[in-house]
Write a protein that binds this DNA or RNA. Sequence first.
DNA 1: AGTGCGATTGACT
DNA 2: GTCAATCGCACTA
Length: 202
Amino acid sequence: MRLRRLRRAELPADTVALARFLLGKIVVHDTRHGRLSGRIVETEAYPVGDAAGHAFRGMTERNRALFLKRGHAYVYFAYGSCFLLNVTSEVAGVGAGALIRAIEPLEGIAAMERHRGTTRRLDLTRGPGRLAEALAIDLAQNGLDLCGAGPLWLASAGDPPRSIGASVRIGITRDADRVLRFYEHGTPFVSGPKRLRAERSS
DNA sequence: AGTGCGATTGACT
DNA sequence: GTCAATCGCACTA
């Protein structure tokens, strides 16, 4: 597969626009055990001022990376069991980002199966905690520049954009009515209940 | 110092 | 479909 590293200037400077932009792009993790990659099919935006966003109550030790300029990785540990991967979206000092919720496995599928302890293709990377585990992402990747020459990066495969759906975000309680979850229609690799997979956006 | 709560998952009915 | 596990962090006192 032909992959081209995305440059920071190509990333939309707006959080919601970035969340939509990321659909169809590739997230790549080059590890000691080879390349792990997947096509992004579901994201959520956590823009400035969003009560559901981790930056809402200011910078802390945990969410520090969320305040890096756009195109950095913000990884955090949730529910005592999972790591979640976000792409930061604003200028330095402003906390906002896009959560990657699901990818379609591309390269390194055998390694992903080992990391996840299953060979069921749909269970590999459907859900933010699952995809992080499949891609071997944890706090060691927190704060990495996704637009630099590092091991974790974003790529375009030149795929034509497909139909995009939108819904409310999953698993939050504050600002729960905002339509800030975006996903690709017609792929089985999207997480969430069925009723949140059919709404049309653009 | 103690408490409550998740940007979830996997097991189970 | 429902529900508990799990633990670091933020918040209160």
